[in-house]
Design a protein around this nucleic acid. Structure first.
Length: 822
DNA sequence: GAAGTGGATATACC
DNA sequence: ACTGGTATATCCACTTC
């Protein structure tokens, strides 16, 4: 039979010692379908290209003789074929060595490697290999053809009987549809739990909420107010165990493609798993009746067979966080930014101390978290789907992997067109060697002259490093061992490095990424839609991560020379542009990595655009400069120490009215709100009027209020992230003290928490800031001197200094407010 | 015990 | 450890006088 199908989840099992891949997805009629497909297992042995036929034959013979006999197993190659392949761009004769199955392949490959053969391809994930071999890419629509596996079919040992899907198909043929022909709205359900104790499985789960894409909403609990009244969406069960089983029952009934949580890999999922095991509650959500699983390894992930568990937090981190305004990735802030909606406000207390009247609010709070999560999922679905399509890995993977892994997956899935054998993952020794390498020189940053400037234009390179890599063909495979005349070369790492001019596969792959990004960006502009936007963004992220990937120690295609040369060529390129702009009589005032700000002077927009065109004509390869924008005014300040201009710190008012603030305390979350807001106001006043008087008046007002102790406590709270376990801190800074206090008071601190505190007046004179730390709830007066001299003044003095306003006199009389005032 | 300096730490920029 | 390097700034830890 033929049917339209979209692959979502991949799994595999062994039957009769053969690997069978199960692909779970939906048909266009919304039915769940499982495809069964057999896959061959093989790895590569690389031989020298110049080897004679006899030598190749003898290598084959030698490998044929390799056998591993253990525990009744007899592992050996079942077929060996010599194939002409490329490895790192060079032709090689490769032996394709087939084994019975994946497990045997791994064992045999290791044994063959130990006999001094160069082995490759044995470290690919079996699902990745399947997708490459069979071209059945996740999240694309296919017309699939195959035989229905009837109840009594024994083709795969009758396993289809135990699968909770509409039907199973033994796959014969597939035909892919055009990516934009069909949309797909997945079934998804979000979940969230509430507990008294946040340490995994320590306490009981009080309630679980569910919210589905189809409008299903439910709170399951076994806790209730004494009067027994409850909202209609709440279902009260006998005990925790029954609640867990009910959860499983509801999810099964919904039969979703995705089970979505927020931070659920590290909390909700393992918590439910632990409690279910302890209480012997049956949670058989897997399509084969299996339970909740946690993946092994350092990064735990919750897994259910046939239902893709997604922890949205992970995906937000890799796909969005760099463009976001939110200062944390908490559900509350993220929902605010993406949905314009916040969490239900609720003050936690232990369930044993919960008043009757408070339960309803608690239920509502719990439900709303799931509602926000499902809404976020729907908002992010186009990106999840496009990431998966572009990178060609299942959504479970792309939603969890960082960009380096995603870049690598993209590369692996695109090797076929270059007939390339995949490079191996670095092993232990190699890893530590790479990690300990010396750092190479990175980007160029222009030292600005502090001041207020008018009529500024800014250019920047499109995909700067990416276009450098493509233009100069920088990669592991194109790096030349010896100097060559006709090659790209540059001085870096204390030597001259050379790269071949013959296009290498890695830069070629990147070239395609950049051109696709351009194409989709253009199409998006012409006819916007969410899918195109997502696709364009996926390519953009890939292009931007390619440089970092080549310098990342964990990369298969790691190459410091390529990474260092990328930075060196980029420095050269930007400096040449700075020279050109200067020659055109425009004063360059700032530049960082790939952008240049300069004074437009009396030149019109058109003239600046012409200048841009002129510069672009002279740029090599695919390098391209674009107009970032025109700005009315901008301010650059000195460093706090010394007279020289501070880098990475400036503020601009665009001609379009938009404010662009970089590096200032305003944008730093570890400064108190008062200092940030004051600075922000000062920047605005200065940029809008070009006049410091109002700004100065404003600062005086703030200081007056501060001295009169009229400032609200929440304005002076300082938030600092705890980035490692408390015991590992060598320097005991204020936020460490605050965290210690929290632990004393049994306030839970999650990994990576933002610690809030303020600096208070103390009875005795204390020298260190940390000795004056108090938690927000702790009674006390804010330390006037600290907030004046360490928060407010530092935040505005460099800005006012530009106008020769001395700020020292602003704090006069600060001493009157020490001990005597209390 | 004050002053100076380097280290540890957090955060931002691109 | 989960892309890279560049940069500012604070506060602690330690040395020196």
């Amino acid at each position: 039979m033929k049917i339209d199908f979209i692959p979502i989840d991949y799994d595999h099992f062994e039957f009769n010692k053969r690997d069978i891949i199960k692909v779970i997805g939906r048909t266009d009629k919304g039915k769940r379908l499982c495809l069964f497909d057999e896959i061959d297992s093989f790895f590569w042995v690389l031989l020298d290209k110049k080897l004679s036929k006899e030598k190749i034959k003898s290598a084959i013979k030698k490998i044929e003789k390799v056998r591993i006999k253990e525990e009744g197993k007899d592992i050996k190659a079942i077929k060996i074929i010599p194939v002409e392949k490329n490895f790192l761009g060079k032709p090689v004769t490769a032996l394709k060595i087939f084994t019975k199955n994946n497990a045997e392949m791994k064992v045999l490959a290791n044994k063959v490697e130990s006999e001094n053969f160069t082995v490759r391809g044995n470290d690919l994930n079996i699902i990745t290999r399947y997708i490459i071999e069979k071209d059945l890419i996740p999240s694309y629509w296919y017309e699939v053809e195959g035989d229905i596996l009837t109840e009594d079919s024994l083709d795969f040992g009758g396993i289809q009987k135990s699968l909770d899907v509409e039907f199973c198909l033994k796959l014969k043929k597939t035909k892919v549809y055009d990516q934009f022909e069909k949309s797909f709205n997945p079934k998804a359900v979000a979940f969230d739990i509430e507990c008294d104790d946040i340490s995994l499985g320590e306490g009981e789960i009080l309630m679980i909420s569910l919210a589905s894409s189809e409008g299903f909403k439910k709170v399951l609990t076994w806790k209730k107010p004494s009067h027994g009244r409850k909202p209609e969406y709440v279902e009260i069960l006998k005990d925790e165990k029954e609640m867990l089983e009910k959860f499983s029952e509801y999810v099964s009934k919904i039969s979703p493609d995705f089970l979505v949580g927020y931070y659920s890999d590290h909390f909700d999922f393992p918590y439910i798993k632990t409690r279910a095991e302890k209480l012997k509650a049956k949670i058989n959500l897997g399509i084969d009746g299996s339970g909740l699983k946690l993946t092994k390894g350092k990064n735990v992930a919750g897994k259910i067979k046939g239902i893709v568990h997604i922890d949205l937090l992970n995906f937000i981190d890799t796909a969005y966080s760099q463009y976001m305004q939110s200062e944390t990735l908490s559900l509350n802030e993220v929902a605010k930014e993406f949905l314009g909606e916040e969490k239900v406000k609720f003050e936690f207390k232990h369930s044993s101390k919960m008043e009757d009247s408070e339960w309803e609010k608690y239920y509502e709070y719990n439900l709303h978290d799931s509602v926000l999560t499902i809404k976020l999922f729907e908002k992010m679905w186009p990106d999840l789907m496009e990431f998966s399509r572009v990178i060609q890995e299942p959504i479970f993977e792309v939603s969890r992997n960082g960009m380096s892994k995603n870049v690598e997956s993209y590369i692996l899935h695109n090797l076929k067109q270059f007939n390339e054998v995949p490079e191996k993952k670095p092993e232990h020794d190699e890893l530590s060697e790479r990690r300990n390498r010396e750092r190479y020189e990175g980007a160029f940053v222009f030292e600005p002259i502090p001041g207020l400037y008018e009529n500024i234009a800014m250019f920047d390179f499109t995909s700067s490093y990416g276009s450098v890599i493509v233009t100069y063909n920088l990669s592991k495979a194109t790096l030349l061992e010896k100097p060559e005349k006709d090659a790209y070369s540059i001085e870096t790492l204390g030597k001259k490095v050379y790269f071949s001019k013959k296009p290498g596969f890695l830069p070629e792959i990147l070239k395609e990424i950049i051109s696709k990004r351009k194409q989709f960006k253009k199409e998006l502009k012409e006819k916007p839609d969410a899918i195109k936007k997502a696709r364009s963004n996926a390519f953009k992220l890939l292009a931007n991560s390619y440089y970092g990937y080549q310098g990342f120690f964990g990369a298969r295609y790691y190459c410091v020379e390529a990474a260092a040369a990328s930075a060196a060529f980029a420095r050269k390129a930007i400096q040449e542009v700075i020279e050109k702009i200067t020659k055109e009589k425009h004063k360059v005032i700032y530049s960082d990595t790939d952008s240049i700000a300069f004074l437009r002077g009396k030149s019109s927009h058109e003239e600046i655009k012409k200048l841009l065109e002129k510069i672009n004509k002279g740029l090599p390869g695919i390098m391209e400069l674009e107009l970032e924008g025109f700005f009315k005014r901008g301010i650059w300040v000195t460093k706090r120490t010394g007279e020289i201009g501070a880098k990475k710190k400036y503020a601009l008012r665009g001609e379009d009215g938009k404010l662009k603030i970089r590096g200032f305390e305003t944008v730093r979350r570890d400064w108190c709100k008062l200092a940030r807001d004051t600075q922000n106001r000062v920047i605005r006043l200065v940029l809008d009027e070009g006049n410091e008087k109002k700004a100065l008046e404003y600062v005086k007002e703030v200081i007056k209020k501060l001295k009169e102790r009229k400032i609200d406590k929440k304005e002076i709270l300082i938030r600092t992230q705890l980035k490692k376990p408390l015991s590992e801190y060598k320097a005991i800074s204020p936020h460490v003290i605050a965290a210690r206090k929290m632990i004393e008071q049994e306030i839970p601190i999650a990994h990576g928490s933002l610690i809030e505190y303020y600096i208070a007046e103390t009875l005795e004179k204390k020298k260190l800031v940390r000795e004056k730390v108090k938690l927000p709830e702790e009674k006390g007066e804010y330390n006037l001197e600290y907030y004046l001299t360490k928060q407010i003044l530092p935040s505005v003095e460099n800005i006012l200094q530009v106008f020769n306003v001395e700020t020292k006199n602003l704090v006069e009389g600060k001493k009157q407010t020490t001990l005597g005032d209390f």
